[in-house]
Design a protein around this nucleic acid. Sequence first.
RNA 1: GGGGGCAUAGCUCAGCUGGGAGAGCGUCUGCCUUACAAGCAGGAUGUCAUAGGUUCAAGUCCUAUUGUCCCCACCA
Length: 878
Amino acid sequence: MKQLDKNYDPKIENEMYNNWLEKGYFEAKTEEGKKSYTIMMPPPNVTGRLHLGHALNNTIQDVLIRTKRMQGYNTLWLPGTDHASISTEVKVIEKLANEGIKKSDIGREAFVEETWRWKEKYGGEIMEQIKKIGCSCDFSRERFTLDKGLNDAVNHVFVKMYNEGLIYKGEKLINWCPHCKTTISDAEVDHEDVNGGFWHFKYKIKDTDEYLEFATTRPETILGDTAVAVNPKDERYKKYVGKMVIEPITKREIPIIADRYAKMDFGTGVVKITPAHDPNDFEVGERNNLQRINVMNDDGTMNENAGEYEGLDRFEARKKIVKAFDKIGQFIKKEDIVHAVGKHERCKVIVEPLIKKQWFVKMDDLAKQALEVYGNGELKLVPDRLGKVYTNWLENSRDWCISRQLWWGHRIPAYYCECGHVEVKEITPKTCSKCGSDKLTQDEDCMDTWFSSALWPFSTLGWPNETEDMKRFYPADVIVTAYDIIFFWIIRMVFSGLHHTKQLPFKEVYFTGLIKDEQGRKMSKSLGNGIDPIELIEKFGSDALRHTLMTGNSPGNDMRFSAKKVETNRTFLNKLWNATRFVLMNVDDVENVKLDESKLNISDKWILSKVNGLAEEVTKNIDKYELSIALQKIHNFIWDEYCDWYIEMVKPRLYDENDDTRETAIWTLLEVLKISMKLLHPFMPFITEEIFTTIEPKEETVMLSSWPEFKKEFDFKTEEKEIEYIKNAIKNIRGTRTEMNVKPSKKTKTYIVTESDEVKNTFKNCETFMKTLGFASELIVQGDKTNIENDFVSIIIEDAIVYIPFAELVDIKKEKERLEKEKEKLEKEVDRVVKKLSNKGFTDKAPEKLINAEKDKQNKYQRMLDEVIKQIDVLNKK
RNA sequence: GGGGGCAUAGCUCAGCUGGGAGAGCGUCUGCCUUACAAGCAGGAUGUCAUAGGUUCAAGUCCUAUUGUCCCCACCA
């Protein structure tokens, strides 16, 4: 027989996990005739390190997949990593820089090779960390967003959408990061409030002595001004429309135009227009056919259009231009203001709007589809309130800029011929289909990483080929992710799935919250407040970490996290471990413990019935994604019911070798523990596996055992009620004894007085528990107060009074005080019920069931109150 | 400027479709009772942010207010 150590040691986790892997337990099941259940793991960045957010959402996925696996579904949890185009490229550039090499020195091909090497070196790490959590994903199907299959899918989609007119190349104003030297999408821009200036200048109106005053937060863009605009209805300026002003630095003459964009009530009502450097101005430019003058280089310095400022950094140029205006008396003032500026979320450098020819995804139709599936309830979001965020974004989204000036990523499959023809093809064309030339060059740009991530739910299954996996596992059942990538990923997966596969890529989305530190701050490198989940696992075990992550939070809500919590949750593991140890100490051979149903006693039936109900509830909770509640219930059952009550109740039978119900008691101990381990397994896979396989050696693993279901034969409602009644009585007795300062070791003769035969029976059935847990040296159950003198402490329970001789225990005064308190409490209760029942509104409208329950309460409390008063009376006469 | 979350015991948070306020940690008291001191038993602590409203009944639904955190946004 296997013996367990006194304290649980989570070191078993590694070996156990490797064993699971070797046995192939995680591999997707493909049994015919069974329903499938699929989850696609949100692919973490290939070069990233695991953080608590990963730990949280992967634990949730593991809980779901393990549950469904045990429930007999064909489960697939597909893992993988993301090539993370920009952040990986940045890392490799840094690495090369340390070696004194520039990206441009080695060229595209060598750089991409270098990055693949980097990926091979560091890319495995994050998956190894995922394993440490205990994730049961199918590594035989692991994918990478830049592997061959996914690249095929990306090219296929690009070509298809190009031919459909959903992808186009256009010259538009885009967000440019001067640091990363690439375009970025709107979603990648963070708006941040900063202290800035609001500079007021004036332009001289040509051929007059008049000036127009305007203001700007970006004076350097003045060099690109091609108009000043006033509102068409603005009486102040009507007369100037059509005239020219002179931009004093370049001496260019620019028109005064009327455009609705200029707001009369803002500032002077005059706004400078720089179509090449501002999204609004760009639109004004479109409407008014304005010239676009780009005054900046890709690195944020001024270009040749900036004249004498060429080569200066944009912020340097800003200062100089203000000075220049000041010099000629056309600078009026500077206000200090706080305004939002766009920064690149990766490098935090201020984004510069620029005009560039880029590739875009047309959003109108796609957005419409995505809105529809949420609107008609096909797509379920948990929690649903995030639907507002979802719809709001889709209703306002602009076309998605997908080209990036990067080398690491899916290269755009567009080929340019010297004749000017563009070929967009999945397979590199050898010659131009128009002129036959073989001088074709491929577009230099890569695609936004999220373009490939958007296809993840189906590209990973072999799409566009009609694979077996595609048929079996698509669409996925649920996607689990933090709410912060709803725009980047969720929405784009939704419309991609709808457009390319004609169905939703998943039925539901479970949004986790974000994990904050103890003070509620975001965990970040710069604050240094991050907690490394791997360290926690090494210290306390994955089970303890998982328990902590799954406790006390609900979908979409952020949680505060501290290592202390993990340490605390470790105690539960130890508790469970020792309970098992206790059971094993009392059994010689777990495989040969027989159940004799006739020997099941009241407590056996109670706990069997309880665990029965638990299984039912937990299953429901998990189905509703109430994972935290489910775990809490299992935790409480094991600790409060199984350990604190059942084990204590069963001890006398175990210690008595001659007790003929002993074996059945052991059987019950084992049975309930087994069921508990099954229910707990999705949450805490390691310790449950260890315990389960120890007490159930017939089964190879708990993870492939069957999920507990409600068993009719173990539905013992009567016994449940009886034991709960006794538990309540015992708690009252214990409480009173403590209050009376009775030593725990002191056992006392205990009388139960009740008129109810039912209650009498309950106490008789539970005599042992009254003796061992209720400190009765002898239990006498009777219908009246015969033989009970006045010197007794009386504990009033519903329908019964417990009398304990008190002469030797306590003084009268104290007992009187205690009863007075009891009386007060009961009076309040009675009062409350009476009030409720005398309220006609209540008796007329409340459901009958509730009214009856209240009436029962009234009776009960009144009886109890009467008894207390009687007892006080007795004491008063002494 | 728009949208949303949160506000419940000293702390961190549960509380699902409205029907007598919960957990863990902390704290206090008593226990090293042969599964577990990473433990056992018992206790204390809450005008469920404020003000209205709906209802027989509101922590739970509605409205407003305050505080706080977050998201979105092109107002020069």
